[in-house]
């Protein structure tokens, strides 16, 4: 457990664990931060249509907010979708043709500066 914020250290998620890549901040800080910024940029692309925004908090937690300012902390990306559905009263479905049409018409995400 983190002695400052009280957060419980989470076990690694499968999306974090890939041999040969930076899987933690300690192993390769720049690449790890870049991957995290990409996660946030992508999540915002997907969730913006529901009035939701994701931002980083302390480099280990995501903050998910809706238009009314209601926010929730999310420890890992895989949990963002269920929290987003609750905050945005929406359904996060990657097979939704409306979402796909929108994504197909957009440019790729810019690489984050490190």
């Amino acid at each position: 457990m983190c002695t400052l914020c009280g957060g419980v250290e989470q076990a690694r998620h499968w999306t974090d664990r890939l041999e040969g890549t930076a899987s933690s901040e300690a192993e390769e800080p720049a690449a790890w931060r870049q991957g995290r910024q990409l996660q946030i940029a992508l999540a915002n692309r997907i969730l913006s249509q529901h009035g939701l925004a994701v931002r980083d908090w302390d480099a280990h937690t995501f903050v998910l907010s809706n238009r009314t300012g209601q926010s929730e902390l999310v420890s890992r990306l895989a949990a963002v979708w269920s929290t987003a559905e609750r905050l945005g009263r929406c359904r996060c479905d990657p097979l939704n043709p409306v979402l796909l049409s929108r994504l197909e018409g957009e440019e790729g995400v810019e690489e984050a500066a490190t």
Binding site: G35, L42, L77, A78, R91, P94
Partner: peptide, 28 residues
Amino acid sequence: WTVFGMWLTMLLHAHGDDVLRVKGILQV
């Protein structure tokens, strides 16, 4: 890997009950 992970976590979040199996070999 980040984009693929985001896609698969979202797919399994929305449709995991109906995804009986996923297996793959990936060039990352």
